[in-house]
Measured scan of single mutants.
Amino acid sequence: EVTIKANLIFANGSTQTAEFKGTFEKATSEAYAYADTLKKDNGEYTVDVADKGYTLNIKFAG
């Protein structure tokens, strides 16, 4: 089991951190699915992958 950390960075400057656990593939998939649910209210997003994929910096356009 691994932990994927998602740093969520919103257009208004606020930030939030979420963690997803499971296999690497499952946790990564859940992180992207979570970002997709936030897209409606926060706009499109870009992802900067860090720490060999264990950290995702997800920035929303607003």
Rank of each mutant, 00 (worst) to 15 (best):
N42S: 12
A31S: 04
A61H: 12
G13L: 08
Y34S: 02
Y45I: 03
L38H: 07
I58M: 09
T37F: 13
V2A: 08
N57D: 05
E44Y: 08
I9E: 05
L38F: 15
D36A: 12
E19Q: 11
T37P: 02
I9D: 05
A27W: 01
Q16N: 10
D41I: 08
F10C: 03
L56K: 01
G22A: 05
E25Q: 14
A33Q: 07
K21S: 11
Y54V: 14
K52V: 09
A18H: 14
A33W: 13
Y54I: 10
G53S: 05
F60V: 01
E25P: 12
N57F: 05
D41K: 15
L56R: 01
F10V: 04
E19F: 14
A31N: 01
I9L: 10
V47M: 10
A6Q: 03
Y32N: 04
A31T: 07
Y54G: 14
T3P: 05
K26C: 04
K40M: 12
A31P: 01
K40W: 05
T46A: 12
I4V: 08
T37R: 05
G62H: 07
A35D: 00
F60E: 01
K21V: 10
I58A: 01
K39G: 09
E1P: 11
V47A: 10
I4H: 00
D36C: 03
E19N: 15
N7W: 05
L38G: 02
K26N: 08
Y34N: 03
G53P: 06
S14K: 08
V49A: 11
S29K: 13
Y32V: 07
E19L: 12
K21Q: 13
I4W: 02
I4P: 00
E30P: 00
E19I: 08
A35I: 14
I4A: 01
K5H: 11
G13D: 07
S14M: 12
S14T: 05
S14P: 07
T28R: 09
Y54M: 14
K5A: 11
A50H: 13
A27M: 03
T17P: 10
G13N: 15
N42F: 06
A6D: 01
K52G: 13
L38Y: 14
L8W: 10
T55G: 03
A50N: 10
T15D: 12
K26F: 14
E25S: 08
Y32P: 00
Q16H: 11
K40S: 09
N42E: 10
A18Q: 13
A6K: 00
K39S: 05
F10W: 06
D48E: 09
A18I: 09
T55I: 15
V49K: 13
T15I: 08
K59I: 13
G22H: 02
K39H: 07
F24A: 07
K26G: 08
I58V: 08
T28K: 09
I9Y: 09
F10P: 01
D36R: 04
A11G: 06
Y54K: 11
A11H: 11
T37W: 11
D48C: 06
A33L: 10
E44C: 05
L8G: 01
K21R: 11
N12W: 07
A6E: 02
V47G: 02
L56S: 00
E1I: 11
A6N: 01
Y45A: 02
A31L: 08
L56I: 07
N57R: 10
D41L: 15
K26H: 11
N57L: 04
G62K: 05
D41Q: 15
Y45N: 01
S29R: 08
A35F: 15
D51C: 03
D41W: 05
T46L: 10
A33V: 15
D41F: 08
G62I: 04
A50P: 05
G22P: 01
I9N: 15
I58L: 12
T37A: 12
A27P: 01
F20D: 00
A33E: 13
T17L: 15
I4Y: 01
K59F: 08
T28V: 14
K40I: 08
A35G: 02
D41V: 15
A61W: 05
T46R: 06
E19Y: 08
V2G: 06
F24P: 05
F10L: 05
A33R: 09
N7L: 06
T46G: 12
Y32T: 09
G13C: 04
E1Y: 06
N57E: 09
F20Q: 00
I58N: 00
K21L: 14
V47H: 04
N57T: 07
V2M: 07
